[in-house]
Design a protein around this nucleic acid. Structure first.
Lengths: 343, 343
DNA sequence: CTTCGCAATGCAAGCGCTTACACACTCTGG
DNA sequence: CCAGAGTGTGTAAGCGCTTGCATTGCGAAG
């Protein structure tokens, strides 16, 4: 029946264990939390007693007593994107092992203020905070650093706060060089978030890097070859249609995310154009569906970013960890949406 | 700056509020939690005092004292799939409003046992549990019902436990009829999870419904037209290659998930075949990328399933809610991967 | 003018842990 | 042989809430 199980279930308290093991509750607590100054024999007795009673510590009581929440907050502008959920998955993976909880919050640009000032609702329940893809800049970082909360920023290179990010300029250069090497001269660019009043420096860095790489090859990036794709599939589609409607459209386009590329490929199909032959398309991310699309792209190991971020947070929570930036590798994945310019 | 804020931050306790408002802590607690028997004037005083002190209740203390965890567990076989994360997003959306937390756990088929027996680690920390896509069957459901924990199952029609699901047989019929109406006679099917020792009834129901619909039209589903695509992109690709290598391959294929379709479309491209002209492909889900692929599919409102599940859980937690099944609508979305058979 | 009922509030006992402090040992070295 | 330095364990005071029960008013009924 398993009634024995259910009845014992979730009911054993630390006192029960203490009684069962014949020691005090304090000793049980220490033994279970691997404190020093517990005799090996005692520890074993306690562990066995706990096992016998199926004891699981009540985390609420533990947190209340210790003042530690064992929870870290994660803030991201939007949680539904592939990028974010992948980062979250990486973070969660590491935290699950460390028995930390993740409290997830959305941070639209306007809510950012609150975070830095320390949104009480959030702040009080967490031991630390991970910001993903929240534009924060050195000013914000400095503010963040003055808060007593451990913080780490994902997706941006910072000095005052531990951060993890790819080298966006390098990614842009990789994409540009690939297109240039294939012989393209008329090259377009699709970014996003340009309409936000807040400057988001990821697209900015990428755009700058891209323009610089073109320039280095003696090429220009005319503004009519630049579109905002909103980092969405539909936005990518619209952007590609716009670019293709130019009198002399680009022969190759870099879109700053694979999802925008999906929309762009749709647009090309609608225009009866073949990607990689009539127009070259290169992305950024290496989304799981990109392989199926045959999309050439700049791969970034998103989940790894999440994992690393979580580990850095753990280090910081334990008092290790110095403030520094951790760069993440980027590499070109060639598939079939890029080729030499037509004709 | 903002020191006034930071210093006040997270430090005000219920006693501080009580003092500030000139009432007892008990009254503060009751006022803040909208209990009956609190005079309107008192409630206002308390609310204002709380506001002034930026008071936020310490949830650990509240949970410890009340015995309620205000957390519900969510179990799913794998969390990385689009389907699951979409469901989770829906659930989270509702819970965030209700100020409930979500504790997420993975449940591979073997871990299932534990859930039903009540995995202590999980059980103790939650007020209820939502199972998504965990094959559970009426037996499991009955077991679940005997646990004192509120439970709801997503993705399966059950009698003993409140459940939410689409009508899989109907979805299969929709797909089959669409292909049949287009004139196809040689129709293939790609499912998944056939290799698991556990029978997962979602693919089973869909396969049965599909075979039945074909039969009703006087068609057969020969076993060489059936492949396992593992519900993954790569699996879909392999399955399509396998089907196309038959001496007389099918002219149309239903794959039980859009992600498998992405792989299938890739396979067709690799074979220089055009979807919708040479071979028709129809999916199931309506994944966000499906529109970009031009994929014809059976749409299920996944996020709504999550939302509804969460609301039903809330009802149950509050003592309302009777055990019943909630069916979810399904509909055909026509795009360009289906057409009449060639020739 | 009592008496009763009930709305409104306060008192105080926990909830199940953690941890400072006190205490009791067992070894050392002088 | 004793002081002092560790170890190992217990005692008990909270952590910040919730809630059963007791208490206080106050209006309505008798």
């Amino acid at each position: 029946m398993g009634d024995d199980i259910s009845s014992a279930l979730g009911r054993a308290t630390i006192d029960d264990v203490a009684r069962e093991a014949g020691v005090s509750t304090a000793t049980v607590s220490r033994a279970l939390r691997n404190h020093a100054y517990v005799a090996e024999s005692t520890r074993r007795k306690v562990l066995q007693a706990a096992d016998r009673l199926l004891y699981v510590a009540n985390s609420n009581a533990a947190r209340l007593a210790s003042g530690q929440t064992r929870t870290v907050g994660l803030l991201a502008p939007l949680l539904t994107s592939w990028y974010t959920s992948e980062v979250v998955a990486g973070v969660e993976e590491v935290f699950a092992h460390a028995r930390y909880d993740l409290l997830i919050g959305t941070a639209n640009p306007l809510a950012r203020e609150k975070i830095f000032r320390g949104d009480a609702r959030f702040q009080q329940r967490i031991d630390g905070v991970i910001l993903v893809d929240v534009f924060c800049s050195e000013d914000g970082a400095r503010q963040l650093a003055t808060l007593d909360t451990p913080a780490i920023v994902l997706g941006e290179r910072l000095k005052s706060v531990t951060s993890v990010s790819v080298d966006n300029a390098r990614g842009a250069r990789l994409a540009a060089r690939h297109l240039i090497d294939l012989g393209h001269r008329r090259i377009g660019l699709v970014g996003g978030h340009a309409h936000l009043d807040v400057v988001h420096n990821v697209p900015t860095e990428r755009a700058a890097g891209f323009a610089a790489a073109l320039e280095a090859a003696g090429l220009r990036l005319p503004h009519q070859f630049v579109e905002d794709g909103d980092f969405s599939i539909e936005g990518g589609r619209r952007a590609m249609h716009a670019l293709m409607s130019r009198t002399k459209p680009p022969t190759a386009v870099w879109l700053m995310s694979d999802e925008m590329c999906f929309g762009a490929l749709q647009a090309l199909r609608e225009l009866k154009l073949v990607a990689g032959r009539d127009v070259s398309v290169i992305g950024f991310d290496d989304h799981p569906a990109s392989n199926a699309f045959g999309l050439t792209t700049i791969r970034q190991p998103v989940r790894d970013i999440g994992r690393l971020g979580a580990r850095l947070m753990l280090d910081q929570l334990e008092g290790f960890g110095t403030v520094m930036h951790h760069p993440i590798e980027l590499n070109l994945v060639e598939r079939i949406t890029c080729g030499p310019p037509p004709g």
